[in-house]
Computed example of a mutant assay.
Amino acid sequence: MKKLLPLRWISALVLLMTFSGPAAAEQSRQLGPWEVHYNAFNSTLLRPEMAQQYSLQRSETLATLNLAVLDTTKPGKPAQQVTVTGYVMNPLSQQQQLTFQEVREGDAIYYLTQTRFSHRETLRFFITIKQGAQSHELRFHQEFWAN
Results as ranks from 00 to 15, higher is better:
residue 111 Y to R: 02
residue 41 F to T: 06
residue 92 L to Y: 14
residue 8 R to T: 05
residue 86 G to L: 00
residue 49 E to P: 01
residue 99 T to E: 06
residue 117 F to T: 11
residue 115 T to C: 13
residue 23 A to R: 15
residue 3 K to N: 06
residue 100 F to D: 02
residue 103 V to C: 00
residue 50 M to S: 13
residue 100 F to L: 01
residue 29 R to P: 02
residue 146 A to N: 07
residue 144 F to Y: 15
residue 89 M to P: 04
residue 137 E to G: 05
residue 134 Q to K: 08
residue 22 P to G: 09
residue 7 L to C: 12
residue 125 F to P: 01
residue 6 P to H: 07
residue 2 K to P: 05
residue 54 Y to I: 01
residue 53 Q to P: 04
residue 124 R to W: 05
residue 87 Y to V: 06
residue 61 T to Q: 12
residue 79 A to L: 05
residue 136 H to W: 04
residue 124 R to L: 09
residue 113 T to S: 13
residue 55 S to G: 08
residue 85 T to Q: 09
residue 7 L to I: 11
residue 114 Q to I: 09
residue 11 S to C: 15
residue 66 N to C: 07
residue 54 Y to K: 00
residue 14 V to C: 08
residue 28 S to C: 12
residue 9 W to D: 14
residue 34 W to K: 08
residue 109 I to R: 05
residue 71 D to I: 00
residue 97 Q to V: 05
residue 46 L to W: 03
residue 55 S to M: 12
residue 133 A to V: 13
residue 76 G to K: 04
residue 124 R to P: 06
residue 2 K to H: 06
residue 84 V to W: 00
residue 21 G to N: 04
residue 63 A to Q: 12
residue 26 E to Q: 14
residue 79 A to C: 03
residue 133 A to D: 15
residue 76 G to I: 02
residue 29 R to Y: 11
residue 69 V to N: 04
residue 45 L to F: 10
residue 74 K to Y: 06
residue 29 R to T: 11
residue 117 F to E: 10
residue 96 Q to V: 13
residue 93 S to V: 09
residue 144 F to S: 12
residue 20 S to A: 14
residue 81 Q to D: 13
residue 129 I to R: 00
residue 25 A to C: 12
residue 102 E to L: 12
residue 76 G to Q: 04
residue 15 L to F: 15
residue 146 A to Q: 15
residue 14 V to T: 13
residue 77 K to R: 08
residue 142 Q to Y: 02
residue 79 A to S: 10
residue 62 L to D: 10
residue 17 M to G: 08
residue 123 L to M: 14
residue 81 Q to H: 10
residue 77 K to I: 15
residue 67 L to A: 01
residue 121 E to M: 15
residue 70 L to Y: 11
residue 115 T to A: 14
residue 6 P to G: 02
residue 33 P to K: 00
residue 135 S to R: 10
residue 114 Q to L: 03
residue 133 A to H: 14
residue 106 G to I: 04
residue 44 T to K: 11
residue 131 Q to F: 00
residue 7 L to D: 14
residue 100 F to H: 00
residue 65 L to S: 00
residue 133 A to M: 12
residue 77 K to Q: 07
residue 97 Q to H: 09
residue 88 V to K: 02
residue 38 Y to F: 13
residue 29 R to Q: 14
residue 7 L to A: 14
residue 96 Q to N: 15
residue 65 L to Y: 01
residue 5 L to H: 04
residue 26 E to Y: 13
residue 37 H to A: 09
residue 127 I to H: 03
residue 55 S to V: 09
residue 70 L to N: 07
residue 9 W to T: 12
residue 108 A to F: 09
residue 90 N to D: 15
residue 136 H to S: 06
residue 5 L to M: 10
residue 72 T to S: 07
residue 60 E to L: 09
residue 37 H to L: 07
residue 138 L to P: 08
residue 124 R to C: 06
residue 40 A to F: 08
residue 96 Q to E: 11
residue 126 F to P: 01
residue 87 Y to I: 08
residue 38 Y to Q: 03
residue 103 V to R: 02
residue 64 T to W: 08
residue 80 Q to T: 14
